[in-house]
Design a binder for these strands. Structure first.
Lengths: 351, 351
DNA sequence: CAGCGTGACTGAAGCGCTTCAGAAAGTCCA
DNA sequence: TGGACTTTCTGAAGCGCTTCAGTCACGCTG
């Protein structure tokens, strides 16, 4: 069975005996023809098995694709296992509907490969927490695609939404200080600075390639004595590497009495690791996360964390997308506010 | 600053003084011209700010978009909070690379709206666990798009990959029976059969609109006396509704001593609910999941569950995509094997 | 030297659609 | 009854690219 050539607008037009423009109008501008003729066209289309204008051809003619390219730093499984991303992207998707999301997962180099971006059929790009200088961003620029960045340094010509990272981190650190803690561990997500993860000097950590890592670190250090801090970086973004990092951090001597985690995911890994080591939280160890993603509230014990409204962040990102698409000028960078949510994973220092 | 018209192939061609075909070849068939001329073309392109052939125009000319449409039953956040999806999709994405994934999230009607599918720029569609008769599937057919379905009934002309649902469910049930359990609760994911969720008769449950729900139910009932079973359906796909359903199930009198959950997500919700009620697992309650998604192993206690290799499933789905895209005939439906992974969430019935 | 193979490049025909400036035919009102 | 609108539909010019059948020049072979 040779698959017959799909019918085109022309086929429908000649079947009905009208011009191609009329058939096009039947789909795109119903007010441009009598409803009677329109019915007739649609019937003929159905009879011929014509499923409506070809999306690609339409895109070429209108120079709009109806898709938003989402540039991710990591593989899909790593990306999706981050609840913060899920929530943000979901909110974004709702706002930009009916635009579809074209997912460009990251490769080894951090962010999607440049040529994937060059050939992506999308009207606009959204970059989610890419490392500084990711090649994908150059491609976006080269193509002249509008760009919205989330949790990233501002790029010229791009719109930006983030959160008050530094302030949030400072809130978390201050909370621990006020509880009497004096020995801190800082737990950062995996990055490509030190591909294997592991212990990090403050200097190295301050040079992280992710803006949020740098900012949150700075926020912590606004409140605690750098000398009282050890920094650990996870080896990757998987839960496994978070667990490994957590064990490493808890194995330091003297053991920190409080852990500042740069995401809830990391904090949850710490909780799990502490559980396995028989360390009681918060009696023997205080843990604070970042994001207030949904699992933070269900954790045992419920996680003290820095809250940012991820749904709002996603929504704002979506609105930025729509505004850039509408040709509006690039708005100034925006941030969602942060607040500290104190739950049960933090308590007084056990001297 | 009016955004200047982007340069096209023609601009580059006339800048260099060659034909348009030559410039096209410089990008697509380097062997068709001297490397010297190619260099010259590429330099001119860079000078003009030409970032390579326009993806849409290229698609129209080649009638290939390089995108795989992924049809989801739910919103993105619900979809992504399902680790099984993440793993599957990740594996799929790796196999079909460099194809990008075009995400079409589901709406209120189950699955993406029909017109979203009609206008999606993709070469092929992958449907992930859609309800029977989802309108999106009709659109796929109408467009004549190749289709791969995952965990769904077979559609004529579609390729299918699933898992041995019924067999897996039977394994789980048999395990509990052998542990002496005689009062069972079956916990099904939310669907649109009974939009609010809640208690379900066996008849209603057997008519579920999701194939995997029906099959797993049948598998459970292959091993346990239907009279010894109560069925609960979650109100939705969120963690919250899973928790609510879990409480409902644990509130039945007499309380089931063992719960058969149709996914790990549901099982984890049960674990959390049991914890809040002070019910010890497995001493007072046995819980078995389905999927063996990553969190199952980290749960407290680690979850006994039916394992299906999700990465393999995703990989096979990806291979099916590639084969259909290559014009190969539709292979017969395939299933990944299942096995029971006994961990610590199941134990002898407490009489 | 005729004949031929080869490498390098081009012309032009699409791909399937949208859109805009009309044309044709009807409607309305003074 | 005639001019001014409306409504309805059409012709044709793109949108930016790929690709195929050549054309052309050149060096090689026998």
């Amino acid at each position: 069975m040779t698959r017959r050539r799909r019918p085109t607008l022309d086929d429908v037009a000649s079947a009905v005996g009208v011009s191609r423009a009329t058939v096009s109008n039947a789909y795109n501008r119903p007010d441009q023809l009598s409803s009677q003729l329109r019915e007739q066209v649609l019937r003929a289309a159905a009879a011929l098995g014509y499923a409506g204008p070809d999306p690609t051809a339409r895109s070429l003619a209108t120079s709009r694709t109806g898709a938003v390219a989402v540039l991710l730093d990591t593989s899909l499984s790593a990306a999706f296992s981050d609840p913060a991303l899920s929530v943000t992207l979901d909110a974004l998707a709702r706002v930009v509907d009916p635009h579809a999301l074209l997912l460009l997962p990251g490769g080894a180099s951090g962010g999607p490969p440049a040529e994937r971006v060059l050939t992506a059929q999308a009207d606009i790009a959204v970059a989610y927490s890419l490392a500084d200088g990711a090649p994908a961003l150059d491609s976006v620029r080269a193509r002249g695609l509008p760009l919205v960045v989330i949790d990233q340094p501002l790029l010229p010509g791009a719109a930006r939404i983030g959160c008050a990272d530094r302030e949030g981190a400072a809130l978390a650190a201050r909370h621990l200080v006020s509880l009497g803690h004096r020995r801190f561990g800082i737990f950062a997500a995996g990055s490509r600075v030190t591909p294997g993860g592991g212990a990090l000097s403050l200097g190295a950590a301050s040079a992280a390639s992710f803006r949020d890592t740098r900012e949150r670190l700075a926020g912590y250090l606004d409140e605690v004595d750098p000398a009282s801090v050890v920094v650990e970086e996870a080896a990757g973004l998987s839960v496994e590497s978070a667990m490994a990092g957590a064990f490493a951090l808890l194995g330091r001597t003297p053991r920190p009495t409080a852990l500042l985690c740069m995401s809830d995911q990391l904090a949850l890994a710490v909780l799990a690791a502490a559980g396995q080591l028989g360390l009681r939280v918060p009696e023997e160890l205080s843990v604070v996360g970042f994001d207030d993603s949904p699992p933070a509230a269900w954790a045992v014990p419920p996680l003290t964390t820095v809250r940012q409204d991820l749904a709002v962040k996603g929504r704002i990102a979506g609105e930025l997308v729509l505004r850039l698409l509408a040709g509006e000028p690039v708005p100034p960078p925006d941030e969602v506010p942060v607040s500290l949510v104190v739950r049960a994973s933090t308590g007084p220092a056990s001297t």
